[in-house]
Design a protein around this nucleic acid. Structure first.
Lengths: 214, 214
DNA sequence: GCCCGTAGCTTACCAGCGGTAGGTTACTTG
DNA sequence: CAAGTAACCTACCGCTGGTAAGCTACGGGC
């Protein structure tokens, strides 16, 4: 098994036993790593437990199932994402700047969590209803944020939901593309989306006249 | 096991033994169904084999592994998708109509394959490099098509690749949204994307003047 | 200091699934 | 009808998700 030759060696204050909340955080961190490395299917609960330095039933004690562990990881990342994006949206006062700042925050978050985030997002769909629902909630969270921001400025009858869906989807793909082309900064990515989307939105919102091309 | 009480009952000309190509097609059809119903992880090779009316090793004989079977399903759907979208793009003569017709064809395809397509696409990422690569090839195929179409009309220095990524990603999300809101027709979905994206593109391409908002 | 309740943790196990070895049956071709 | 081969099967293995049941160290009360 794992080698624990000297209990007092290495980090001195390293406790073998630790409170549940701490252990849970540690488990989620390791799980995120392992899921990212191996992929969800290939990742084994034994390996995760092993790397944490704990036995498998502890994982099940705290997270119920492999899917539950994945869901917990996603939920954590989701909270962080909401934090940074909604924070970025409150400071500016024009809708254009709100969207731009939100996009920059989004692409920055993706860039920082590159390895794990893309995997987590991809993997979830495969697992089952609960994990799929969780990853869908991440998008729902983003679309809601965009949709509600737009609703502040768009006329009432404009259905903002599908528009937000297109934006979120476009950003996801672009983020994956940016991973392959690492020289693209979050700011550049955000600017591209602004170029593409914003003036499209401007054409939809009656305030700003459409270019009337045909 | 499965019940085969009377070999000549039911469909009279139903052969127990059939040539490999036919059997493979049948297996892929059943697999697509089962993957869509249960999800990739939950779907078992035993069940697929059972529904086909054949034993499990046959699946491995023909597809090598569970992942191989999934890859085969995706590859088949990919070929069909390329067929309908590229066909739709050749008839029109203006770039706007090319994109619109391509979008309509895309959303129509998604609508028809609703159950299986969304799952196949979601599931692939989780499996492993080969299936992930395969599903990425589907998108590459779409982005290439869009990108090359755009390149016919856009000026040389415009990098069409990331733009195509955003379009493909936006359409994917919108397609999933349309599944939840079934009253949206493929034509309406395509029109929304046109409204959103096209005039954004118009702002980028020097030919068509941007709305000049600020 | 000592007792003891409980949170943290473990060993040992099961069922089911992906995957395989090796043999059997039914078509085809001469 | 012989016989070669493609289609097919039974029976099995190892690994992984998941669980039962019991052990142990920490902390509070006396």
């Amino acid at each position: 098994m794992r080698s624990l030759p000297d209990p007092t060696n290495g980090e001195p204050t390293r406790k073998r036993r630790m409170p549940r909340a701490d252990r849970e955080r540690q488990m989620m961190a390791v799980a995120e790593q392992v899921f990212a490395e191996r992929g969800y299917v290939a990742a084994s609960m034994d390996e995760i437990a092993d790397r944490v330095g704990v036995s498998k039933p502890m994982l099940y004690e705290y997270f119920g199932s492999k899917e539950g562990l994945l869901v917990a990881c996603i939920r954590l990342a989701r909270a962080e994402l909401l934090q940074v994006t909604s924070d970025a949206c409150v400071r500016p006062d024009t809708p254009e700047q709100m969207l731009r700042q939100g996009l920059i925050a989004y692409f920055r978050f993706i860039t920082e969590h590159q390895k794990s985030w893309a995997l987590l997002r991809s993997e979830a769909a495969v697992v089952g209803p609960s994990a799929a629902g969780e990853i869908e909630a991440v998008r729902q969270q983003q679309t809601d944020l965009i949709s509600s921001t737009m609703a502040l400025y768009a006329p009432a009858p404009l259905d903002t939901a599908p528009v937000a869906e297109v934006i979120v989807g476009g950003c996801e793909r672009l983020a994956l593309w940016c991973e392959r082309n690492q020289d693209v900064t979050p700011e550049q990515a955000a600017e591209l989306v602004m170029q593409l989307i914003w003036f499209g939105i401007a054409a939809v919102v009656p305030d700003t006249p459409s270019p009337g091309r045909g």
